[in-house]
Design a protein around this nucleic acid. Structure first.
Lengths: 262, 262
DNA sequence: GAGGTCCGATTGTCCGGACAAACCCAGGGC
DNA sequence: GCCCTGGGTTTGTCCGGACAATCGGACCTC
């Protein structure tokens, strides 16, 4: 008991570039820092880089890969921003050991369900152009009475109702066709026509189901519903979508990851 | 109507460094890029930089400030990450014009209420050390039966119950004293003793109130409640807190901002 | 043995430059 | 009038280097 090696992980940290099979392809159009970030992320997810272990120092890593230090730093920084790595001056960069998943995408319910293997289906209940109500106009930044598409959809999983989705889109942005809405999510359609979704503001609450809502979702009146209202903006700051949705609380909940801002 | 100037904002974009009173203090210990970022952010918030307007190009900006381009880029990038600016190659950097607020802090209910001027109050109902249940142990990454602090609090605003908060903390991390919990939020106490909160995983749902829960929150049995379960991690990835909370849906909802990952 | 001090290691900040890629607009060709 | 091409502008990527700030352990002193 005379000797102690208290270092968290006394890893020799030799040529990680080789031991982790890191290496970049300079003929690829993919940026070098991005290639490196992807490889590191894969190594972390597959456990080849153990949680808590130290990454070799930036200078050696750069030398081993034939890159400059700024490029290596850019790669590491992108993973720090994702919450996968933590840097400590004077110590090094280590892998966070926790089940950090994804810091909350701007995701659609459709994609969520599909990723969970839930066989999502959509029934378009309504799809029409109408003048915007005061609430919708305010959310979208339009004049009251301006024309908007109104889309109402029932979302099912395994043939069971999950949620009732009501969306409003400024007319002229693009025309959501019912046939396509049945086969995929709204966001995927919007991205497909070149709208680059950027940010969203959303409110999540709960309330008791009305009679009509109960009918739609196969719940008794008064059953707790999860509500979500969301306004989505493109990268110029224009509001491109306002949705107000209700979910069966017995079947659905929101799960997400938060990162503290530096 | 023969001439059209379709440029979004045909701003001459001369010496913005002067017109916006930008300038850095090289004797300050605050990093240069951070000083610049703060000044730009202030200019945006105060409207001196109008939404949609173009920032002068990076090279001129750097020259005007006596900084290098990488430093200016670092400042701009930090604001892009916050969602305040958008870059377009070949075009320039422009201010997003939308009511982007904050991309969701890891905030405590206490701070939220205080910020809203709601005069929050706390009544500590229970504060004891006990063995961890299976659920708590799993959430905190401890062995079942390991000692944990269990804290139950009733949170009021304007003397009305708002939420009932149940938290579990690994014993030995720090001792949450009831007297201090009455005066502030749990997160503030944890930060004060040097625990650096880093990320959290949370689930938001809804359910009907039980008889006992209704009593606590002054709601009838069966009333819809908003539920939130959260596990918080420090920057080494250790779980430092697990909370499972219920909110009166009639009085409270979650509101937050999402940013799309690049 | 306890405490403070020094020092090597590592990341943080900053510089100056170079070329590539994407975008917008004007001009020319049809 | 319409399409395509070209050039100028601006950001994106990458390099190599320099010094400062911070951390943690080793060493020395008392």
């Amino acid at each position: 008991m005379s000797h102690r090696y208290a270092r968290p992980v006394p890893k020799p940290a030799a040529d990680q570039a080789e031991s982790l099979q890191l290496g970049v392809d300079r003929s690829s159009p993919v940026p070098l820092y991005f290639q490196l970030a992807q490889q590191l992320e894969a190594a972390i997810e597959q456990g080849r880089l153990a949680p808590g272990s130290l990454l070799g120092n930036e200078i050696d890593l750069a030398k081993g890969l034939g890159l400059s230090r700024p490029t290596v730093r850019q790669a590491i920084q992108s993973l720090v921003d994702k919450g996968l790595l933590v840097r400590r001056r004077g110590v090094g960069t280590q892998v966070v050991h926790s089940q950090v998943k994804r810091p909350l995408e701007l995701s659609s319910l459709y994609d969520d369900l599909e990723a969970a293997g839930q066989r999502p289906a959509t029934r378009v209940v309504r799809n029409a152009v109408e003048p915007a109500s005061a609430e919708v106009a305010a959310a979208l930044g339009l004049a009251e009475g301006a024309e908007v598409h109104r889309v109402e959809r029932l979302r099912l999983a395994h043939d069971e109702p999950m949620a009732y989705l009501t969306n409003h889109l400024p007319a002229g942005l693009f025309k959501p066709e019912s046939a396509r809405l049945e086969g995929t999510g709204l966001y995927r359609l919007m991205r497909a026509v070149g709208i680059s979704l950027h940010s969203a503001r959303q409110t999540v609450g709960a309330r008791a189901a009305t009679e009509a809502e109960g009918q739609l979702l196969a719940e008794p009146p008064g059953a707790p519903l999860l509500t979500m209202a969301r306004t989505t903006f493109d990268d110029t700051g224009r509001a491109v979508e306002f949705g107000s949705h209700i979910y069966r609380a017995s079947r659905y909940s929101f799960e997400f990851q938060l990162l503290v801002r530096a």
